[in-house]
Design a protein around this nucleic acid. Structure first.
Lengths: 243, 243
DNA sequence: TAGTGGTCTAGACCACCCT
DNA sequence: GGGTGGTCTAGACCACTAC
């Protein structure tokens, strides 16, 4: 878990508060100390504390009541992800209580399909790297992900690519690119035989299909892919705070 | 460009900027004026402008680049929702380019099922109001929603309930309750015959199923339901900004 | 009424990108 | 260097809730 970009003060406060909620220093249903008290404790301004609390609010971890106080949401034991974490498959698996693992199935260079070239803004038939990966939750097969990126993006075109990395780390290490946002389409499908067998799924049962394309800050498409998610194992529970 | 004091200033600035993006005053790919200029134009502080821009950023409508500027995301024509709008079905339909309509199918009182009583924190067999509604997109049937709430919540227990309201307005008008957040589960299912026929769907085709429960700020469950979504008509396209 | 979160301000400094 | 967004501060007032 090498993210460690808790650089800003607000982010650090966020981490501390989250930890206190998780280890029940602030127990479920409890009222947190007022923002002014937290600000004094951490030696920061109230605005900084509010910035940290805002994230916890969006995730549903806390409930804020004007004129009253801020409370730990006691209903979040059963929820395994908030909306922002939808595309972090390993994190999704982990927060469902499983041990995540990524098993690379294939990493091959080939010509782009028409759809891929269009999505990635490439010339037809351009050379792309195709990554097939299987996500495991406690040895159970839960997500089958097929991703494609332009071969031109790869800087260290070594032959031994570590396809078990998080997609974000993969893009950073091999392409020196940062993912800024993603556009996705979610639908229900009956998987083809290949996907069905890889996920060890009985015929006739539907799966969730996620078509995801990642972009960088310059709005250049970096990577596109199709993922199949077995929702019989992985409960996709989301919490969404109301604006 | 008068700023009214009714809603928050940041919200009004947000609406104005969103409008300018939609009507192409700020065209796709364009750089927005700097925050300091916007602050001066609206006569507000830079923090307020930033608060307004933050929402547009989360929705993917703009891309912010440190040291450079803020740009209109030119890739958002095809996206019909951001994650926060997932549970606003009419808004979802509207932003897909269709005319939304809610057709009430049934509004009956009955005893709660075991699952419903558990979810809503009710005594077994409590009296509940069951609302069956069909969402139309340009006359096409796209979402079939079955919702249930405790009969005790209804204050004006009139016989003529308007079930064509948005669920948020419904809770406000008939129960005087505000929805604070929702916990949902999303999965792919083969619908039973009833749901299949209501949505006019061929047999054997999967649908998206959303199990949603709404809560208020006091963390009391207000309403729970199951919705079936026809993703062949309604493309569920989401944009998710990366933290 | 006292205390809470919600909002807004004015100003400061930093990190980063451009030329 | 000059300008941009990113962060943080100190202080103010408002809206709401509990008592």
């Amino acid at each position: 878990m090498a993210i460690q970009r808790s650089k800003s003060i607000a982010e650090q406060v966020n981490v501390i508060l989250r930890q206190r909620i998780l280890d029940k220093t602030y127990a479920p249903g409890d009222r947190l100390p007022p923002e002014s008290v937290l600000a004094r404790e951490f030696g920061v301004s109230r605005a900084t504390v509010r910035s940290a609390l805002a994230r916890l609010d969006v995730e549903g971890l806390i409930l804020r009541k004007q004129g009253d106080g801020t409370y730990v949401n006691e209903r979040l034991q059963e929820v395994n992800t908030h909306l922002g974490g939808l595309w972090e498959f390993t994190q999704l698996i982990e927060s469902s209580g499983y041990q995540p693992a990524i098993k690379p199935l294939a990493a091959i260079y080939r010509a782009a399909t028409e759809r891929e070239a269009l999505t990635l803004n490439l010339e037809p038939e351009s050379n792309v790297l195709s990554l097939d990966r299987l996500f495991l939750a406690d040895e159970q097969r839960v997500i089958y992900a097929q991703n494609v990126l332009s071969a031109d993006l790869l800087q260290n075109a070594s032959d031994d690519i570590d396809a078990s990395l998080h997609i974000r780390d993969f893009m950073k290490i091999y392409c020196n690119r940062d993912i800024a946002y993603a556009i996705s389409q979610i639908c229900a499908v009956l998987p083809d035989d290949a996907a069905r067998k890889i996920l060890n799924r009985r015929a006739g049962l539907p799966l969730l299909q996620l078509n995801i394309t990642f972009y960088d800050r310059q709005n250049a498409p970096l990577l596109t892919g199709v993922s199949y998610l077995d929702d019989s194992v992985l409960n996709l529970r989301l919490v969404q705070a109301w604006g």
